[in-house]
């Protein structure tokens, strides 16, 4: 299941929601992305822009791909947009499976792919002014390692 929202999320509530529905879950992996303050505490805020419609389409596609590749009982992706501040949560990925390997690997896959395939762009507002975040080579490499 995917969600694109401005509101914050509560990881424990999300996990409880998943485990309460299925007693065959043996392991859960989670990844939470958080806004960093940056060097010299320079970041004031970060505004996430997204392409409404395509975002949901791509997140669903990535989610479906994870379910094809791993044996998963449940997944959840929550991605926020709008203005966020240092320390704020940006994204949550939860994967639940019977055995740990499926949950751990698919969680890494989901965050790696959504970083380069989900249409979000980050505008950083720092003491030095506003700047759009550029694509990182390490993110491209992390994403491409899952390409079959």
């Amino acid at each position: 299941m995917i969600k694109v929202q401005t509101n914050d999320f509560n990881i424990n509530e999300e996990i409880s929601h998943i485990t309460s529905k299925n007693k065959n879950i043996g392991g859960i992996s989670t990844f939470t992305g958080i806004v960093r303050e940056g060097s010299n505490n320079s970041l004031k805020s970060m505004t996430l822009e997204h392409y409404a419609g395509m975002t949901e389409k791509m997140l669903n596609k990535i989610d479906l791909e994870a379910k094809k590749r791993w044996n998963l009982i449940e997944t959840k992706i929550i991605h926020r947009y709008g203005k966020l501040f240092p320390g704020d949560q940006i994204v949550l990925v939860i994967t639940a499976s019977e055995h740990r390997k499926d949950a751990i690997e698919s969680c890494e896959f989901l965050i790696d792919w959504l970083k380069t395939k989900a249409p979000f762009w980050k505008l950083e507002d720092s003491v030095n002014g506003s700047k759009w975040v550029e694509e990182r080579q390490s993110d491209i490499e992390a994403s491409s390692k899952w390409t079959t």
């Binding site: 959504l114 395939k117 759009w132 550029e134």
Partner: peptide, 28 residues
């Protein structure tokens, strides 16, 4: 992106398509 799918630049397009142009994505 053409109709919400990222495409190569040799992709055929027509008047009804929804086109979006943007820099590389930086989600997560």
């Amino acid at each position: 992106a053409v109709n919400m799918e990222v495409v190569n630049f040799d992709k055929d397009i027509n008047e009804q398509d929804e086109i979006a142009i943007f820099p590389p994505m930086t989600g997560g």
